[in-house]
Amino acid sequence: MNRRQKEKLIKAIFFVFALISVVILGLIVFSLFREGLPLFKKVNIYDFIFGLEWYPTADPPLFGIFTLIVASIIVTIFATLIAVPLGVLSAVYISEIAPQVIKEILKSSIELLAGLPSVVLGFFGMVVVAPWMQETFDLPTGLNIVNASVILAIMAIPTISSIAEDALYAVSREFKEASYALGATKFETITRVILPSALSGILTAVILGMSRAIGETMVVLMVAGGAAALPESIFDSVRPMPASIAAEMGEAPYRSAHYQALFATGIVLFFMTMAFNLIADYISNKFRQVGSGTL
């Protein structure tokens, strides 16, 4: 075998490996649609998405997932509101302010946070946060929107922090020096030069953090409370889509309407996370700064 053939072979091998993940993704999406779409022969799409009643085992069953969608959106929004300031500000501190030693400690503890299995966080929410919240605020249950949002935020912080940190590091040293040389303080340099320059990366970080939160299953299954009803207060229990799928899939008969409805819920979730990722992609391309010194 000569050198050229070898090159070709190596190329082909890498291509196959690269292809595998794409093929697997394709197969998963295919089976998701194959199992979920038949539901819409029995229930129309509008009733499915905007229906307020989720009684999949009643007779006749009702498959309205609006309350589940609302639940997912609400916990994601609250988790984002908590996680974004914490994640972004810690990234700013780590990349721009912290002395070397503290930087190392903080970075590795945030990475450790990312490594915590979600079931451990869910367990923490269940046995520590929930009873405390129930007692402190005198609630019927501590498994509610606030609890789920806090735990989801803890999960999203490492994602947001590490991606935002990369974006901040990528801000060219030349911009910082230019700012300091004009007599700007560190704070002025951070708020007026570094953050705006890293904005696209930070927005990407936020959206990827949100997509992490909306798809997260174990935490919402354990601490969101599981009530498929429209919440009236932030201390109400809710049933986000992933929790519903995980809790019911085991008991839904194979290829029954209930089973198909759960897959259809999965399709909705799939489209939502895909939208988040597309937005993140769009932002990071659109606002990417033109590099300096286009000579």
Binding site: F175, E177, A178, S292
Partner: peptide, 8 residues
């Protein structure tokens, strides 16, 4: 500076 470094 050596390399022109206007802010974006």
């Amino acid at each position: 500076f050596q390399k022109p470094n206007p802010f974006p």
